[in-house]
Computed example of a mutant assay.
Amino acid sequence: MKPLRIGTELPVRRALLSRGPVEYRLDRRGPRTVVILHGGHMRAGLALGEEVFAAEDCTVLVPSRPGYGGTPLTADGTPAGFADRVAELCGRLGIGQAEAVVGISAGGPTAVALAARHPRLASRLVLMSAVGPLPWPDARTRLAARIGFHPAVEGAVWGIVGQLLRVAPGTGLRLLLRDLTTLPGRDVVAGLRLDEREKLLELFSRLRSGAGFVNDLVPVPGLTAQVEVPVLVIASRRDGSVPFAHAEALAAMRHAQLWESDANSHFVWFGDGWEETAARVRAFLDTPEV
């Protein structure tokens, strides 16, 4: 495996809104816009799973959720509260309607809230490996995450991760994927192409938790019953981070359909099954509105 090369982050901006600043990235392409709410440890300057929308010539808006990047964790850092801020950001940027709102992993509840509270903005909802209206994570994982990813120590933790990835990338990748799959980590790594391994190594080397991940662990009321737009739920039964039961609960929404990914981990964009999943996403973008 080649030595890890850490590139620069994608350029971001910051908007001062009525409820505080929001960091965001806006990649303008065609007239259709997709709003992407990434999961834990991610921020607007990092990209994951966006290629399928870029290939459709969609403009992509990626806000950093509360506590991540340049979006501070305010008193109203709930998914519902931030959904309102994203809607305000869209209005500020002249985005009257999004072709889809995409919620990934821990960004799922915010995407659901945006679709529920601002249906005129969200034409469709795509949920990938998303946290649903069930308790998450389990009590043991929650306790460990609150300690290991506390804002006071998370920088040091990710610094150690980065050093491990530089010294022993294969070992580091296996250890990091261990909690993201129900399979042995070595088997998941063995099933990745070389370019996929390098992408994951670079992604893992840039992750930070800020104050955001601890905030993600706070239970919030679910808003799935209020969603009236078409929904595509994508998940793998081999996801070791968000159990498949979350996808089944999300698929119980009205106008929802469940697509079972063949991915070997939480990262549905990697592995042989992604092309088929990407085709399903493209077809969903072209479905008529309810």
Rank of each mutant, 00 (worst) to 15 (best):
M1F: 13
P3A: 01
L4G: 07
G7W: 07
P11A: 00
R14E: 13
R14G: 03
L17I: 03
R19P: 00
P21V: 12
E23M: 07
L26M: 15
D27F: 01
R28H: 10
R32S: 09
R32Q: 15
T33L: 10
G40C: 05
H41L: 02
G45A: 15
G45R: 01
L46E: 07
L46D: 06
A47E: 15
L48T: 06
G49K: 01
G49L: 01
A54K: 00
A55L: 08
E56Q: 12
L61Y: 05
L61E: 05
P63H: 05
P66T: 05
Y68T: 01
T74N: 10
G81A: 11
F82L: 12
C90P: 03
C90V: 12
R92C: 13
G96F: 03
V101T: 01
V102T: 04
I104L: 15
S105I: 05
S105D: 06
A106L: 12
G107C: 08
G108N: 03
G108C: 11
T110Q: 05
L114A: 11
L114R: 02
A115I: 03
A115N: 08
P119S: 08
A122H: 02
V126T: 09
M128D: 05
G132V: 04
P135I: 10
P135D: 00
R142W: 07
A144H: 11
G148I: 09
P151K: 11
P151R: 14
A156Y: 06
W158T: 07
I160M: 14
V161Q: 08
G162D: 06
R166K: 07
V167E: 14
P169H: 12
P169N: 03
R174E: 13
G191V: 10
G191R: 15
D195F: 15
D195G: 02
E196T: 14
R197T: 10
E202N: 08
A211H: 14
V214C: 13
N215T: 06
L217K: 14
V218R: 15
P219G: 03
P221Y: 12
V227R: 02
V227G: 08
A235C: 13
S236G: 05
D239S: 06
V242S: 03
V242N: 02
H246E: 13
A251H: 12
M253D: 12
M253W: 13
S261P: 06
S261I: 03
A263Y: 09
S265M: 10
W269S: 13
F270L: 14
F270I: 09
F284M: 10
P288C: 05
E289H: 12
V290S: 13
